[in-house]
Amino acid sequence: MKDATPTLLLSMSAPPYWHCGRTVFKRSIDQLIALLPAAAMAVVNWGLPALRVMCLAMAVCVAVEAICCWAMDRKSTIDDFTAVVAGLLYAFMLPAGAPWWIVVIGAVSAMLFGKMLFGGHGNNPLCTPLIGWAVLFISFPVHMDPNIVQTATSFIDPLARLKYFGVAEANAIPVLDLLLGHQINALGAGQVGALLLGGIYLLVRGQIRWQIVIGVLIGAGFPFAYLQMTDPAANASAVFHMCSGSILLCAFFMATEPCTAPAVSAGMLCYGLTCGLMMFVIRHFGSYSDGAPFAVLVTSLLSPYFDMIRPKPFGVK
């Protein structure tokens, strides 16, 4: 009998003993793969400054997480790569020409107030990258405005064009230009085609919930499409709106962050629809030309209420 050999140690654990193989680390890697096309397009369109911002943001995020874990006397969690994902997503919301100190301030506040103060990955009530973005957007609006930072470019800002030059000018922008990221926008949020690709990859891999994505796209797209149908002269098309600002980035990568979203199908769909509707409301009636990040932040706060929409458990009458 083999137990006579003292070297054989069996490992004990709790059921189940089979596992689907997914881990937090693999999820992060999937997210990075999904973000890769957009990152590459950002470098193609904006050159090395974009790469600089992305690298700096990721490095600072990882460093902040490591320091926080050390200060809290906890095992370091940087090896699950969630900080890298958060850093890259945060960088996607910045203009390519953002000065280094702004990147650092935003990244530190994102990781501190958007993640570590709540206990780390999965406990944050709001989307980590958006916290950093919101701090900067409120505090340094000038440095965060791509139109001001990005002067040496032939691209145009579709949303500014819509706001100041009217619908006809905005509709004249070819959709292909928007898809390829030939627009003045945050460095990653503008790479619309690449983000779409990455988002579909995440959907196929089952890493993000289709209910949320569909909800956001319908919630934001339907009102814009309806307005355009009723009055084409006064309203830009839904496709234009989807491809400008950061609606797609928010729909696929921000709103779907599972810890800030509800957990049950019906709730997720309502959450997505509300989020999309908020995007429409802020963009159409508000003073901000984009509005998508604020919509996600506000809707995330409603998540606990959407979580109350849930089916009756098994056998409960």
Binding site: S11, S13, A14, Y17, W18, H19, G21, R22, T23, V24, R27, K75, G119, G120, H121, G122, N123, R209, P258, C259, A261, A263, V264, S265, R310, P311, K312, P313, F314, G315
Partner: peptide, 26 residues
């Protein structure tokens, strides 16, 4: 063959368990 179970691992609220639960629990 499976990822090891390591001592303390807090919930990351990914929602997989709620999605799969046949009893529709959390």
């Amino acid at each position: 063959t499976i990822p090891p179970m390591e001592g303390h691992s807090p919930c990351v609220a990914c929602g997989s368990c709620s999605a799969i639960c046949p009893a529709r629990l959390r």
